[in-house]
């Protein structure tokens, strides 16, 4: 049974919020796939906790986007009734979980950014975004600490864990550039003081990564070629499968209350 996708009027502010909401939802969804299958119970708990934080952030950001759009959409319509070409998340967050090292490297790259980003966003001129940022920053700080500790353990653990962690870094590195990219619409929001320039955070992000990987005896790749596309809906093949699962109920039983 096919259900039509919703149409979203992507003003710069709506698009901005959707991008961040999609990041949080897709990464939260990926982490939730571990629930019941993690290497130890403590990590079932931790990964679920982080997933819950991210899904919570997504809900606030979708609600903000829906209000900014001012039409009939809401958090569930935005999450469940847009297809892969309408999703605006980073390619990084949709990458499959892979092994535990790949999941944690993905988390490390993202959280090291999110922590800085939401802290800076607390100064947004938009009171709602500033409030979302204040909550997200506290959560991201914990996510970063959790991921950093694991990067160190895996990098400086056994030969096998070292190889796996390094492989994950090498594999995911090219997806990190997109975090710092900005288009014209977002540039205008930056000038208006509503959002912050992610590009300005890259130096500090890199310092965090360098410090932690050094302690973990791991190395950051030298290549600076970066894969882009998620922000404009050109995704990897992985996202379609994720969405078909995430959206299956709303697509199969349209318009019902659950």
């Amino acid at each position: 049974m096919a259900v039509a996708n919703i149409q979203v009027s992507e003003t710069p502010l709506v698009l901005y919020a959707l991008r961040r909401a999609d990041d949080a939802l897709i990464l939260g969804h990926r982490l939730s796939e571990w629930c019941g299958h993690a290497p130890m119970l403590e990590e079932d708990m931790a990964l679920s906790n982080i997933a819950l934080d991210l899904i919570g952030q997504a809900r606030e950001l979708y609600t903000f986007a829906a209000q900014a759009e001012g039409k009939d959409n809401d958090e569930d319509k935005l999450a469940y009734l847009r297809d892969v070409r309408q999703y605006r998340n980073l390619l990084l967050v949709e990458q499959p979980n892979g092994d535990f090292a790949q999941t944690l490297v993905r988390q490390f790259f993202y959280s090291a950014f999110a922590d800085l980003y939401w802290r800076a966003m607390m100064n947004s001129r938009d009171a709602t975004l500033a409030a979302i940022a204040a909550k997200s920053e506290k959560e991201s700080a914990y996510h970063l600490r959790h991921a950093s500790e694991w990067i160190i353990r895996l990098g400086d653990g056994t030969d096998e864990s070292h190889v796996r962690a390094q492989a994950a870094i090498d594999r995911l590195w090219a997806f990190t550039g997109e975090m710092f990219a900005v288009d014209d619409g977002e540039r205008a929001l930056i000038h208006a003081g509503i959002v912050v320039d992610p590009g300005a955070l890259r130096g500090r992000w890199l310092t965090t990564l360098s410090d932690i990987t050094r302690e973990a005896t791991l190395t950051l790749p030298q290549n600076d070629w970066m894969q882009q596309g998620g922000r404009s809906g050109r995704h990897s093949e992985h996202l379609g499968h994720l969405l078909s699962e995430l959206q299956s109920m709303q697509r199969t039983f349209p318009g019902l209350t659950w």
Partner: peptide, 18 residues
């Protein structure tokens, strides 16, 4: 968890399993 019908249900189910 990955197929819960709304975001609210998804969060509640994940929290429950946790």
């Amino acid at each position: 968890i990955t197929r819960a019908p709304t975001l609210r249900r998804k969060a509640a189910l994940l929290a429950k399993v946790q």
